[in-house]
Amino acid sequence: MSNIDKATVAKIARLARIKIEEDKLEPLAGELNNILDWVEQLSEVNTDNIEPMSSVVDAKLRWREDTVDDGDKQDSVLKNAPNAEYGFFAVPKVIE
């Protein structure tokens, strides 16, 4: 049984950078617990000596030649930016 509490929801939300209102934490914890309890039926399955499968494609990675055939498109890169100045993306100040 999974027991995600409010604090855990807040922690996950922080990792995922998603603002969740205080009064939504509790109901969300309930929903997440429901889903996780349901997926926990996987623990019934014996997976000893089973290789995890991360891709169904049974091939090795294809390699590209080391040639410059892209880039040089500052306009395209910045075109959709909410704020761009002097060729840079501008974002609210980072507090170090």
Binding site: A16, R17, I18, K19, I20, N80, A81, P82, N83, F89, V91, P92, K93, V94, I95
Partner: peptide, 23 residues
């Protein structure tokens, strides 16, 4: 940062932008 919605609370920093925009 790069496209789409950007919501920043007044005086917010980068992290505030992440939370609000994604929230």
């Amino acid at each position: 940062v790069k496209y789409g919605l950007r919501n920043v609370p007044d005086g917010g920093n980068l992290d505030d932008m992440y939370y609000t925009t994604r929230g």
